[in-house]
Write a protein that binds this DNA or RNA. Structure first.
Lengths: 213, 213
DNA sequence: ATCAGGAAATGAACATTGTTCAAGAACTAT
DNA sequence: ATAGTTCTTGAACAATGTTCATTTCCTGAT
């Protein structure tokens, strides 16, 4: 009884995810996958065009898991009982931090890979997932009654979440001692607190004429 | 007339930076460097222990250039004539954005490389440079009269700059059309505006009991 | 049960890379 | 000039991604 093509792909992806999590992108080797999956190198290339596609598939799984079970659930917190914007955003950020902590090796790989796909064709499925995340944040922001039209609220959502993302990834230089973790969380708390307060007081409309050349 | 060891190292680094800027980390090949520098592969390994060291050296040069000629100059804007915190932060962010735009290939490589040095020994020179940047931001924040003690101001500086960093790097998925550039700048403007407004209204002290597990 | 035809798996072979190192070349001090 | 030191070289090795002719396996018709 041999595994289905689909099942074998799943097995390969599971192995690939483990490899990425242990040693990053440069640890994803065709021969290692083949050996651990009990198949030959050639068979790996039968299931996937090349290692890039394996990496991409692993990333999609990770992003799916983050979006589905993580942030969306946090967005409508405790059965809609909590309406405070700051609490809900913080809960989402906490979910994101936990997720990154749970994938110390593969999450950096996601980012590095994502950055490297410059020459690839059109709008990827990545973008769709990211847009989804941004819309969740925008949904939470809508609950808070700042004077924001849809366009500006979307901008604020992207800005806020990119900032959270920056804090988390800047802090996690794989230096995962608890000191670092606390610092990251302090920064996230500060950011969210200041951001919400700033929105409440119309900071989103304060313009300055300084622009990049 | 042969080049000095120092001069040859410079030449190699210049070539390496060009290679990185064109094709990212995977374009930094020992044989290409040797050929373009007019020396042999072995000589490259005489000058540098391995390609990682070449990459690291290029990154140090980049970070130096960013810190020295970029942000520091912007921090004391127009001969101390400008005291507005928001303007000065925006000017620094603009310098940062310009810098990233000017190094579309090698800046991602800096980040990817920086993320991969998990197993390396102790506090790197990277950290020193980053701390320098954070202190510049903190210096600007000090001018604005928010009710912040030194510790909390330092935290705010790290938070703000990590956020700017996140916005810039999230936006630059090497997709450098002008649409993207404008979006990035809008986000930076929004972030800085909201952040300053939030600090003015004491958002830095607004706490929530939500914490990561 | 047999066999033809196609689909899938195989792993040897190739190309490209990082890295090493023994041999030679160049230079320096006496 | 000569011995010793240092630098340079490029051939050689190992590890990797990828390909593809060959083999193996399965399926369905006879």
């Amino acid at each position: 009884m041999a595994l289905d093509k689909e099942e074998m792909s799943e097995k390969v992806l599971a192995i690939a995810e483990a490899l990425l999590n242990e040693g990053g992108a440069e640890n994803l080797k065709a021969r290692t996958i083949a050996e651990q999956a009990g198949i030959s190198v050639g068979s790996v290339y039968n299931l996937f065009a090349d290692l890039d596609e394996v990496h991409r598939a692993v990333n999609m799984r990770l992003l799916d898991r983050l979006g589905a079970t993580g942030l969306a659930a946090m967005a409508d917190l405790e059965g809609q009982g909590v309406t405070d914007v700051q609490h809900r955003i913080l809960a989402m950020a906490a979910a994101y931090v936990r997720f990154v902590e749970a994938h110390p090796g593969s999450w950096p790989a996601v980012l590095a890979f994502n950055r490297r796909r410059a020459t690839r064709p059109g709008p990827d499925a990545y973008d769709a997932l990211l847009d989804e995340l941004f819309e969740i944040v925008a949904g939470v922001l809508k609950a808070g009654d700042f004077g924001l039209d849809d366009k500006r609220r979307a901008l604020a959502a992207r800005t806020l979440w990119s900032s959270v993302h920056g804090i988390v990834t800047s802090g996690y230089v794989a230096n995962s001692d608890s000191r670092q973790a606390e610092e990251i969380w302090h920064q996230v708390e500060l950011l969210v607190g200041v951001f919400v307060k700033g929105l409440e007081h119309g900071g989103a409309f304060a313009h300055a004429e300084t622009k990049p050349a």
